[in-house]
Amino acid sequence: MSSRTVHLIGAAGQLGTALRGTAPAGAVVRPYTSDDIDLVRRLSVREALAGLRPGDLVLNAAAYTAVDDAETDWDLAFRVNGTGPALLAEATADAGARLVHVSTDYVFAAEPGRTAPLEPGDLDPAVEPESVYGASKLAGERAARAADPSTTVVRTAWVYTGGPESPDFVGTMRRLEAARPEISVVDDQRGSPTYVMDLARGLWELIGRIDGPGDGTAGADLHAVGAGEATWCQLARAVFAGLGADPGRVHACTTAEYPRPAPRPAFSVLSGRSWTDAGLTPLRDWRSALAAALENR
């Protein structure tokens, strides 16, 4: 790790916490929470990042992630997810620094019948995502790249911490296993389960390569996800099995049987080829990662 300062935006969130906990020895990390920086106000961003120097890196792990709430709270979603990255990118462009912006599988529009994992080049600029959340994240990608063409976008998916008290899917399944004899989980949505600690370590590897020999990540779109794919039902059954419980207690249902305000992609498996093509270590298989997460009791 070089002597550059890594300005970590969203330091108190799920990914930000993991990034702080996995920072390599010698890394100079300056964390920012919502108390330190208001991503929707240019003056706040400028003041917070006034010390940004050439060669520094801004890692944006902050986002409005309430997918269902965004359907009605679209203004805030677009300000945080759309305007925020643009303001960060303006700051990095002016300072000669670099921005790494974390995005999501939700930026892809529905493609009925697709079975091949999504590559960065599969993003159709003429087709908008299904949800407000996805549209706001895509707007942020585009705005950041317009303000600073060197911005590196890292898309990930189905991120979980998995601790007993975690509000994410895996944490919720842990609690439901202890509280209910049986549950039903949708089995017609397929994606890429990603353990947040693996994602954080991958991002640190990326940061360590930036501006190094052979670095080709400036202006790149990369996908960093757990290897393999699963439905939510398969993931839930794997959680139960990992806890020593009967996975048969998890019953499959359809999305139509469990309606939500925001539409979910039926297929949003992300290919990790762009990540490995950049010379980065692939994230481990999601089942191995889940086993590690469940050990955190």
Rank of each mutant, 00 (worst) to 15 (best):
S2G: 15
T5I: 14
V6K: 02
L8A: 05
I9P: 01
G10T: 04
A11F: 06
A12T: 13
L15Y: 01
G16Q: 10
P24N: 13
G26E: 11
R30W: 08
T33H: 02
D38P: 01
R46S: 06
L52I: 10
L57D: 06
N60D: 14
N60K: 09
V80G: 03
T92N: 10
T92W: 09
G96H: 02
A97R: 00
L99C: 11
S103H: 07
D105G: 13
Y106Q: 12
P112D: 04
T115L: 12
E119N: 04
P125Q: 02
A126N: 12
V127T: 11
Y133A: 12
Y133R: 05
G134P: 04
A135E: 07
S136V: 07
E141R: 07
A143D: 08
A143Y: 00
A147R: 11
P149E: 13
T152S: 08
V153M: 04
V153L: 11
V159T: 14
Y160G: 02
P164C: 10
P167W: 11
V170T: 10
T172E: 12
M173K: 01
R174N: 04
E177M: 04
A178D: 10
A178C: 09
A178W: 02
E182T: 15
I183A: 06
R190F: 01
S192M: 07
T194Y: 03
T194I: 08
R201C: 13
W204C: 04
W204T: 02
R209N: 03
I210C: 05
L222Q: 03
A224E: 09
G226C: 07
G226H: 06
E229D: 15
A230P: 05
W232D: 09
L235F: 03
A236Q: 01
V239H: 06
G242H: 02
L243P: 04
G244N: 05
A245H: 03
D246M: 10
G248A: 15
R249M: 09
H251L: 15
A252K: 02
C253R: 14
C253S: 14
A256S: 11
Y258C: 13
R260V: 15
R260A: 15
P261L: 12
P265N: 15
A266D: 11
A266E: 13
F267M: 01
F267A: 05
S268V: 06
V269C: 05
G272N: 05
R273M: 12
W275G: 10
L280Q: 02
T281P: 01
P282H: 15
P282N: 14
R284W: 06
D285F: 10
S288H: 06
L290W: 05
A292E: 13
A293F: 05
E295A: 15
E295I: 04
R297L: 15
R297S: 15
